[in-house]
């Protein structure tokens, strides 16, 4: 069992957990993810690592409540226990001194982009950060990102905070203004990552995206998370989660992410209706 040492509500549906997991924290690096399972009947869900503290032995995860599992996770509090927590999984971000780079975080994607920006800056890069959200209410970690980057620009889709516009609008300005960045890292919802890639392709700017595919084991065993990259089948769990965004088949990725849409809806409705556990699978509760 893994204890939640700290819980923060970053936005109405966005929660942060700092979880005691010394084995994971010891090895965790920017770009990797963990898989957790709340209880015996739970599903295994991947969450990208937002921060880690090797000394304290903790991993920080930020998640948005969208389906049953993330909603249920959001009901847990400081001191509560999570049944299973495994990682660090996937390959870490390739960190080196590229010169100057851009890190784009959209929505809940601000969390996983943060340790990457920090590591890139520590490696000697000039890091321009761009973060955005649908509205000011959903924006978080502006301070942390400001610390992690050499310069930070903030935007909201509806203009309710900072400037109005999409992260791609800001990205175009930054590229035009500063000229010749070496690398762009973009993490956020699929449509955002796709839009960023469409833009950076115009400038021939190499762009790394982090794919949060549906997974089961997360160790390359089941193949559920497969994505097509440059015409080849890759597993997001062991070959990723980061890939060259210009080579990712985003259409296929979006379709595969929606495979269980109707079941997810059913599960969430049952959860919202307060249906409690009644099966015979031998679970607790």
């Amino acid at each position: 069992m893994y204890r939640i040492l700290n819980k923060e509500t970053l936005a109405p549906t966005i929660k942060l957990f700092e979880i005691e997991a010394p084995v994971v924290a010891k090895k965790a690096a920017a770009g990797q993810f963990i898989i957790l399972r709340i209880h015996d009947e739970g599903e295994r869900i991947p969450l990208t690592i937002a921060d880690f503290d090797r000394k304290k032995g903790t991993i920080t995860c930020v998640f948005q409540e969208v389906g049953k599992t993330t909603k249920q996770l959001g009901t847990l509090n400081q001191g509560d226990l999570i049944k299973d927590f495994v990682g660090p999984l996937g390959l870490p971000t390739h960190i080196k001194n590229y010169g100057w780079v851009i890190c784009v975080g959209g929505g809940v994607g601000v969390a996983p982009v943060h340790p990457i920006a920090r590591a890139l800056k520590q490696a000697g890069n000039e890091v321009i950060g761009i973060i955005g959200a649908r509205s000011g209410e959903l924006l978080f970690w502006e301070d942390k990102m400001r610390d992690a980057c050499s310069e930070l620009r903030v935007t909201t889709d509806d203009g309710s905070y900072a400037r109005k516009g999409f992260v791609t609008d800001v990205l175009r300005e930054v590229i035009e203004e500063k000229k010749d960045p070496v690398l762009c890292v973009a993490i956020g919802p699929l449509p955002m990552m796709r839009a960023v890639c469409n833009l950076t392709r115009e400038y021939n700017l190499k762009t790394i995206v982090s794919l949060n595919s549906i997974m089961v084991d997360g160790t390359g065993m089941c193949g559920c998370c497969r994505v097509t990259v440059d015409g080849e089948t890759k597993f997001a769990c062991v070959d990723g989660p980061e890939f060259d965004g210009h080579l990712v088949d985003f259409d296929e990725m979006a379709r595969r992410s929606a495979i269980y849409k109707s079941q997810e809806k059913q599960s969430l409705e049952q959860f919202n209706a307060g249906v409690t556990h009644k099966c015979s699978c031998g679970g607790e509760q």
Partner: peptide
């Protein structure tokens, strides 16, 4: 794995579809 390990046959009482 979905069926045996995650007990998808008990969905939605078990969460894995």
């Amino acid at each position: 794995t979905r069926t045996n390990l995650m007990k998808a046959y008990l969905f939605p009482d078990c969460d894995t579809p």
